[in-house]
Computed example of a mutant assay.
Amino acid sequence: MTSSDPLRDPARCKELLAQIEESVKGSTLRFMEVCGTHTVALFRSGVHSLLPKSVVHLTGPGCPVCVTHESEVAAYLELAGKEGVIIATFGDLMRVPGPGGASLKKAHAEGARVEVVYSPFDALAIARDNPGDKVVFLGIGFETTTPTVAATVRIARQEGLKNFLVMPFHKLVPPALDALLSDPDMAVEGFMLPGHVSAIIGMEPYRPLAERYRIPAVVAGFEPVDLLQAILLMAEMKRQGKPKVINNYKRVVADEGNPKARAIVAEVYKPVDALWRGIGTIPLSGLGFTDAYRAYDAFEVLGVELKASKPLPGCRCGEVLKGIMRPDECPLFGKACTPAQPVGPCMVSTEGSCAAYFKYQIDLNSDR
């Protein structure tokens, strides 16, 4: 940290830490972040290790690769073996383990046509260059990335490009929060809400957190001062018994979100029930194609179905995603499961909580 940056000022961070400790004196605060970038930021900045022991940081289902269900992984691996199909994917899906130790990386080594792309527009270019093949983009991500995928599909339709398809595994954050709070095993007392997602959806979808569940929630940025301010706001709301949903990232997030981005998504997609690793089916927590864009649905065009798939043996990623277990409490953590040889997706993705714990050498004896 350098004092020249007000969002990383050590003196301000020290002041906020003291205020947090005073606010939670004689009580606790169990807060959950639901953003992979927050997961990494809390660890990388040292904020996680500096918090008083009465403040418990839980990692939630904020990593899009991690929440992709076992059945969804099995579905795209099945597709990777089909003749005339090119899989286009972001790189962090390549090593996600599937049934029997399968993965896209292994499928590629065995001859499957798998292309790593940096955006769905790259996948569209591959489709243009390979008119005799079906190019299937794996639509993994939350509300942040969905508008770009929807815009790409719209371009494909405008160009009359019929060989570009998407497997829609998109997930929606607010229904997942509702599902977590409905779980009797959960003991969350505050949510650090995702900045990037909130820039798209705005504040309104989060209102039930305070109104129905009486849980304080704060949209936060990613610098140390942002993180500590959000924790302090949650602690103060809990202490006062006045839960609200607060936008503390106004330099990026407008209360109304991004209406244009949402309009593009609403044209191409509609809410559908979706599977989440460790949680199961959450009603209306995913996106499927509207009737006007069904010709771009890889499931429908290529006849792929989601089938029951068993969880990865020994992997506790699902419990980590629900905040029931810390990564280091998994018996495989740091032993059979490492970033070099991951057993589950929470150790694969750079935004995965297990990978963050491992990379930043969290004290395994910590109560946090």
Rank of each mutant, 00 (worst) to 15 (best):
residue 6 P to D: 12
residue 11 A to Y: 10
residue 24 V to T: 08
residue 35 C to T: 04
residue 38 H to M: 08
residue 40 V to N: 02
residue 43 F to C: 13
residue 50 L to H: 09
residue 51 L to Y: 06
residue 62 G to E: 05
residue 73 V to S: 09
residue 76 Y to T: 05
residue 83 E to P: 14
residue 85 V to F: 04
residue 87 I to F: 03
residue 92 D to H: 02
residue 92 D to M: 01
residue 96 V to F: 13
residue 99 P to F: 07
residue 101 G to N: 11
residue 103 S to V: 06
residue 103 S to P: 02
residue 105 K to F: 12
residue 105 K to E: 15
residue 118 Y to G: 11
residue 118 Y to F: 14
residue 120 P to H: 05
residue 121 F to W: 13
residue 127 A to L: 03
residue 130 N to Q: 10
residue 138 L to S: 06
residue 150 A to P: 05
residue 152 T to I: 02
residue 166 V to E: 00
residue 173 V to T: 15
residue 176 A to G: 11
residue 177 L to E: 07
residue 177 L to M: 10
residue 183 D to M: 08
residue 185 D to I: 12
residue 187 A to L: 11
residue 187 A to N: 15
residue 215 I to C: 08
residue 217 A to M: 08
residue 218 V to I: 12
residue 219 V to I: 15
residue 220 A to G: 13
residue 224 P to S: 05
residue 228 L to F: 01
residue 230 A to S: 15
residue 238 K to Y: 04
residue 245 V to L: 10
residue 247 N to M: 07
residue 253 V to A: 04
residue 254 A to I: 04
residue 256 E to K: 14
residue 257 G to Y: 09
residue 259 P to W: 00
residue 260 K to S: 13
residue 262 R to Y: 02
residue 278 G to P: 06
residue 285 S to E: 06
residue 287 L to H: 05
residue 288 G to W: 01
residue 289 F to H: 07
residue 291 D to V: 00
residue 291 D to C: 00
residue 292 A to M: 00
residue 296 Y to S: 04
residue 298 A to N: 03
residue 302 L to D: 07
residue 303 G to P: 08
residue 307 K to W: 07
residue 307 K to S: 10
residue 316 R to T: 04
residue 320 V to S: 07
residue 339 P to Q: 01
residue 340 A to N: 11
residue 348 V to T: 07
residue 351 E to V: 02
residue 352 G to C: 03
residue 355 A to W: 08
residue 362 I to T: 13
residue 362 I to S: 03
residue 368 R to F: 06
